[in-house]
Design a protein around this nucleic acid. Structure first.
Lengths: 167, 167
DNA sequence: CCTATATATTTTAAGCTTAAACTTTTATGC
DNA sequence: GCATAAAAGTTTAAGCTTAAAATATATAGG
């Protein structure tokens, strides 16, 4: 008869593991939503672009050979149809090109244009400064520590056997 | 769209503070996106609902008196127009009611219906189990520690003086 | 009272996102 | 060769999200 109704009540420092993990989740959600919304707003105002476009360009940036549509959606872990739309808009902005692949008439290869590469390199540098600013309250040591704790904590989940070292 | 820029910038264990914070950000993003997508999928399959609807119901659940539309959008930190649409759908599902406020003909008060309260209580319990499962790799102590580190690190940013624990 | 401003909410336009259905092309089994 | 399955992409329908514009009401100042 101790703490039945515990979940309706306030969670304190000594609550059960489920409560503590729920707290952690709410905290993670809050921080990431805050940073994400800052990034979206800054990308929009300063570069007239969006986070999804930025993400697609980032994925293409380090594979100079380009990526197939399906490789792109796998790399970003979003649906195929999603990438179709984003790439379409990037094509009209001439930041990206989509060309057929010789051996396979189903597939398309997507690459950054020269303008796309230049634009992205610039944005990526500024982006890193933004993150540094937004997380300035976290010391380098703490950042390292949190990375490790989350890393080990999530390692068991849905491991994607992509083998990509850049995950 | 997780970890894209990871190796644009060759980060190693001993990199500069900006790199370490970028690493932290990419890690936070990855974890929260993973959990969020799990939650979305489970909410859809098991309760035929969505995360935004769940969030709205959660906000209403602990204020039995209900909330004005603007209070709701402030609590969830989303735009006004956003809440309009979600509440509309919840109304058609009869999980929520929207009634005029006596003194002010501009404002509306939103409340959970009886069905809404019952449904949400059930979902919330399952939701907590899901979080506990998804974060099972993180010990209670580590969860506590990460909460603290992120809390102090973000305290300076856009502080909302709401004092709400469930922000 | 009248005008200006602020507040509460909805509407609109554009884009993101997914699951599911669909089209086309390639690979496989007999 | 032919049927069938698998793979690559696109399309579609539904919903989420935001910023900006629009609507309606409330509040203040003169």
């Amino acid at each position: 008869m101790i703490d039945l109704h515990a979940d309706i009540l306030e969670m304190d420092e000594h609550s059960a593991p489920e409560k503590q993990r729920l707290r952690l989740w709410l905290r993670l959600l809050k921080v990431s939503r805050y940073i994400e919304s800052e990034l979206r707003e800054r990308l929009r105002k300063q570069f007239n672009t969006t986070l999804p476009r930025f993400d697609v360009m980032a994925a293409l940036y380090r594979r100079k050979g380009g990526l197939k549509m399906s490789e792109l959606s796998a790399a970003l872990r979003v649906s195929n149809g999603n990438v179709t739309g984003i790439v379409e808009r990037l094509v009209t902005e001439e930041l990206v090109v989509r060309e057929p692949i010789p051996g396979d008439r189903r597939a398309m290869r997507v690459c950054l244009t020269e303008i796309g590469r230049t634009d992205f390199a610039h944005m990526a540098a500024v982006h890193q400064e933004w993150i540094n600013e937004l997380l300035a309250g976290v010391s380098t040591e703490d950042a390292e520590l949190v990375c490790q704790l989350l890393d080990s904590g999530m390692a068991a989940d849905k491991n994607r056997p992509t083998g990509d070292k850049d995950d």
